[in-house]
Design a protein around this nucleic acid. Structure first.
Length: 221
DNA sequence: GACCAGGCACATC
DNA sequence: GATGTGCATGGT
């Protein structure tokens, strides 16, 4: 149980980190993707995968003119898997994409527009029931495809903020999400996560706190 | 060749 | 509830 003064420090760090990062780096204008559906596909395809490999997969889908709900609904799973090879785990991800479309058809008559009218908590609960959609993917979809204020936590969030001793390296996903939901401004959730990913690319995967190479000055007071 | 990349499901203790 | 493992390509 954090004390009131430590709580205040954390809140200050969270707000300050965003402001520092924003002024150091500038707006990221995320998520990269033209439509809500493309964002959802990207969220699934980027699971534990470098974005560059996802771009190739999405380009291939576009090239075959199957980057739409209707086209992917009819495309056999094994053909879909081959098109998204570059994103890795392609058999699993093809199954996940199919599972999402089945969910959309079953609950929202295949309409993302209808789906977007549902409230955040209900949607999150439903998304987490879909095969292949865990907390990060669910929050990415909610925040970037549907503009709902659900903070996205990822491997970089854990890495960066644990190195700054804001929370432990083994902190649970929900605890970290709750932390940002409580301490950050909802209107910044979108940019905040985008900035974290940008910063994360500059933090060495292994490394001690303040190893001298990671750009601490981007967020530290 | 090792390690990493914007996770998740499932088995087992 | 914590811990371990399979999934897989592509860049450094």
């Amino acid at each position: 149980m954090p004390t009131k003064s430590s709580e205040r420090k954390l809140r200050t760090f969270v707000k300050g980190a965003y402001e520092k990062a924003f002024s150091a780096i500038g707006p990221r204008k995320w998520w990269p993707g033209d439509t809500a559906f493309e964002i959802i596909l990207g969220a699934i395809l980027t699971q534990n995968t470098a974005w560059k490999n996802v771009e190739k997969a999405i380009a291939k889908l576009k090239g075959h003119r199957v980057l739409s709900i209707a086209a992917l609904r009819d495309l056999p799973e094994n053909e879909l898997a081959q098109m998204i090879r570059s994103s890795g785990y392609f058999n699993m991800k093809a199954k996940k994409i199919k599972a999402f479309i089945q969910f959309l058809d079953a609950h929202y008559d295949g309409s993302l527009k209808t789906m977007g009218k549902e409230n955040l908590e209900k949607l999150r609960e439903q998304l987490l029931q879909v095969h292949g959609i865990g907390p990060e993917t669910a929050d990415s979809i909610l925040l970037y495809a549907f503009n709902k204020p659900s903070f996205v936590v990822d491997t970089y969030t854990r890495r960066i903020f644990s190195r700054h001793h804001i929370f432990s390296e083994t902190e649970s996903y929900d605890a970290m999400r709750d932390f940002f939901m409580k301490h950050a401004d909802p209107s910044t959730f979108n940019e905040y996560h985008a900035l974290i990913v940008h910063i994360g690319h500059h933090y060495c995967a292994k490394g001690k706190p303040n190893c001298g190479q990671c750009p601490w000055n981007w967020i530290a007071p």
